[in-house]
Design a protein around this nucleic acid. Structure first.
Lengths: 339, 339
DNA sequence: CCTGGCACTCGGGCAGGGCGAGTGCCAAAA
DNA sequence: TTTTGGCACTCGCCCTGCCCGAGTGCCAGG
């Protein structure tokens, strides 16, 4: 168990290193933080902290820098979440209030987060599976080709083209459309399958049944297709503030950011409620081994329908970043609930 | 006027420099290209080319590198468009054929282009203004709130929420929906305004008229909103292959890529038909002064509905890049025409 | 347990020197 | 007139050695 003062020293090291980007030595520490002890004492504490794996020296006779474990302790026990300033809050509101549709909300959110945190922002579109259906629209492109448009309560729109086994009359179409909406309108995705399974049987003509089956199959498929989860990223220019040894640092991060799968998994691991901070090697994907990810769920009402977060160097301002992420997530949730 | 051989020398310089990324000297040139003359002769030619501004030396007693003007000449007169290899073509087809909807097409195109050219790819979504309307859908969210969904022949979907001045009955809604589609279905955007301007008058109730006017206003607004032109970018990880003096090179490019406005303008300047190559300082935006942009329009049928291109270092393989861009644009056009 | 002192380590920055690629010019050859 | 080989020169790059200072670990005394 570390003494109170040792924790204080660790906190000071983290803060200074985040600020200066340079290894911090015992003398500088005592000068900048009124710890009330001499450099020599701090040195002893540092030796212990290093022994325990919370800090390390890049090379002998340099200052110390926090390890992933050190940041972890800092985040868990030493740092709170810094609430945003009033002007920052106002900025969030102003920026987000002008959004006209879902794309716009997500786009603005990404830019906002990137700007506030000066890091890379990632925002997932509200997921299909946790939303409910606002409306289903069916229209004939040609007699043998239908288009299915699905509108969710979060404003998301999905479309699919369906090739009909047999031509489908306009009246039958209207009929189907009405029945479909009657059954699934306003229902949650999870409930849909059992609500529509007997629909084909209620049509008399065998050809009609075939088409209805095809439509329903497509609908269910669309609901399930998790892989369609989209996301938007922004603020990549902030990566250039990362470090000085660019190619090696920045490259894998950019690559990771292009792999939707990786990113989705990253966000997907977020616990249902509350914020998650993954530090350095805690990230499964090795390209992100020298970055930290701060993420949180957001949603209309109490439940999270998607996630958002930022990706930055392990050496980041955790309290500030966490504050910004949380504030933005909350407000986006409100916006979605209103619309 | 430059002699044939001098042009040949310029071509050789461009090719070698693109390959090696290093200034190329007279001796190396004669060794790698059977020019049939001695290094001394080449030196004389180089002196002339430098005088004319086609090449430059980074510092005294180094080899030469092409200037923007040199690349320009190379692209205009010395290089053709390199057709893709059969496997490459096949790759394009395989990759693009699996797309399920417009988002998917655009997403795949971006990844494909980035991979083929090993540069940053930019693809604009098919523009609204040049498409025609496939269908307009109107549905009531609440009695006093409508949602307008617009589906274009390129598969794009736009949605808007409308607050009604007065409640609007379900039958009136069906009526309006039918009339609207009857008038504008299948018509080009440009023709829409005059087709709907008298619609409100055909309704009797004053409240209904007000609502119909609101709907039509929203519709027209949606059609006009050019700023809604969206685009997708990919392959940013390729930027890390740019140069060695990262922060200065890469930063402004990443910033430019995040500015939709800048990018749209960039693509927007493309001439209607044919490919455009903007080299270095030919780009208005100064962050892109050391990059080149190769772009071309694409579309279903003969007409371009949007543009796509790649952004890379001025030192790029122009023939290959141009070949890839052209091939991809053509095939995307086909895909859109089919769907 | 804290503190001041002291010897030691090691990375970063700076200066100097050799190396080599590449140039420009010139006089001779084609 | 153009091409060629020769030659002296320039200048950036890289390697080396050096010094400096920040920072450490240890120890003896408070």
């Amino acid at each position: 168990m570390l003494s109170e003062r040792r924790l204080e020293v660790l906190r000071a090291i983290v803060q200074d290193y985040v600020g200066t980007e340079e290894p911090v030595g015992s003398k500088a520490l005592t000068e900048r933080h009124r710890l009330g002890v001499s450099p020599a004492t701090v040195r002893n504490d540092m030796a212990v902290l290093e022994e325990e794996g919370y800090i390390a020296q890049p090379h002998t006779s340099a200052g110390r820098i926090p390890t992933d474990k050190g940041y972890r302790l800092f985040v868990d026990r030493l740092a709170g979440v810094k609430p945003l300033s009033t002007p920052e809050r106002r900025a969030i509101h102003n920026f987000l209030d002008g959004a006209v549709d879902l794309d716009d909300v997500v786009g603005r959110t990404v830019r906002l987060l990137a700007q506030l945190t000066r890091q890379v922002a990632v925002v997932q579109y509200p997921s299909l599976t946790r939303s409910s259906i606002r409306h289903v629209e069916l229209l004939a492109l040609t007699p043998a080709r239908l288009m299915l448009v699905l509108i969710t309560d979060t404003g998301r729109v999905e479309q699919r083209v369906i090739d009909c086994p047999a031509p489908f009359g306009e009246t039958s179409l209207a009929d189907l459309r009405a029945r479909l909406n009657g059954r699934v309108g306003g229902r949650r995705f999870a409930d849909v399958p059992q609500l529509v399974q007997d629909l084909p049987e209620s049509f008399e003509e065998p050809e009609e049944r075939a088409t209805v089956s095809a439509v329903i199959a497509t609908l269910l498929e669309t609901l399930v297709e998790e892989h369609e989860e989209r996301l938007m990223i922004g603020g990549t220019a902030n990566l250039t503030r990362f470090g000085h040894d660019f190619p090696l640092t920045i490259r894998p991060v950019l690559e990771a950011l292009e792999e939707q799968v990786v990113l989705l998994k990253l966000l997907g691991e977020v616990k249902e409620s509350g914020m998650t901070v993954r530090i350095g090697h805690e990230n499964a994907y090795e390209g992100l081994n020298s970055t930290s990810v701060v993420s949180v769920g957001y949603g209309s009402g109490g439940e999270a329908v998607a996630k958002l977060g930022v990706v930055g160097p392990t050496r980041m301002d955790y309290p500030g970043t966490m504050g910004a992420v949380r504030a933005v997530a909350r407000y986006v949730g409100q916006i979605l609930a209103e619309s």
